[in-house]
């Protein structure tokens, strides 16, 4: 059994856990403490508010231990706010959070809640089927380093990318019934 953690400081935690439960051979665990962080094989950083999660990571001394585990090769996947936490650079904000993934992101890139949207696309890296993509006040990637592979561009903006053991998506597979991205993260990374 692979222990897959979901960072449980705030946000779409239960949604990720219930997606992970649908995948064979996976034990989902909520991660709120350093101890719990050390015990997981891989980690999902969920959607939510990146400022809230970033502050709690700092206040509870999880920021450096988590960054270290990612640098040591632990597979990690950030959805939406999770993407922002992973990014080396955040537009208009000199201070990043984990700063492990060589991408620059724009927060609330599509505007406010009235501009949140849903679409369907094929992302070959994940699946050959059309998968639903839900964007909620989402960020996108504005620059990538040379080790980063963009996985999907939408209207000229990168909304999914991979770098070694790190995966980032602007959208929220945990809000759909499609387990393709969760399956990819658990079994193919």
């Amino acid at each position: 059994m692979k222990k897959v953690g979901v960072l449980a400081l705030q946000g779409s935690v239960e949604e990720h856990i219930s997606m992970l439960k649908k995948i064979e051979g996976i034990m989902p665990v909520k991660v709120k403490t350093r101890q719990e962080l050390m015990e997981v094989d891989r980690l999902i950083i969920p959607g939510g508010e990146s400022t809230t999660m970033g502050k709690l990571l700092r206040d509870y001394n999880l920021l450096n231990p988590l960054a270290d585990r990612i640098k040591d090769g632990m597979p990690v996947w950030g959805t939406c706010a999770g993407m922002i936490l992973l990014a080396k650079r955040i537009e208009g904000n000199p201070e990043g959070h984990l700063m492990v993934m060589d991408i620059q992101v724009r927060r609330n890139a599509y505007g406010r809640q009235v501009n949140s949207f849903m679409t369907h696309k094929v992302i070959p890296e994940f699946s050959h089927e059309n998968i639903p993509l839900i964007f909620i006040r989402a960020p996108y990637i504005t620059e990538t380093g040379k080790n980063v592979t963009p996985l999907l561009e939408l209207d000229g903006h990168i909304v999914a990318a991979k770098q070694e053991n790190m995966l980032a998506t602007s959208f929220h597979p945990e809000l759909t019934n499609n387990i393709a991205v969760h399956d990819y993260f658990c079994n193919k990374m």
Binding site: A8, L9, Q10, G11, S12, V13, E14, E15, G47, G48, E49, T52, C80, A81, Q113, S116, F117, M118, I134, I136, R137, H172, L175
Partner: peptide
């Protein structure tokens, strides 16, 4: 409506 319920889900635990 689904997207609006989804935004509330992002606020959970907050």
């Amino acid at each position: 409506y689904q997207l609006n319920k989804n935004l509330a889900q992002m606020l959970k635990g907050g």
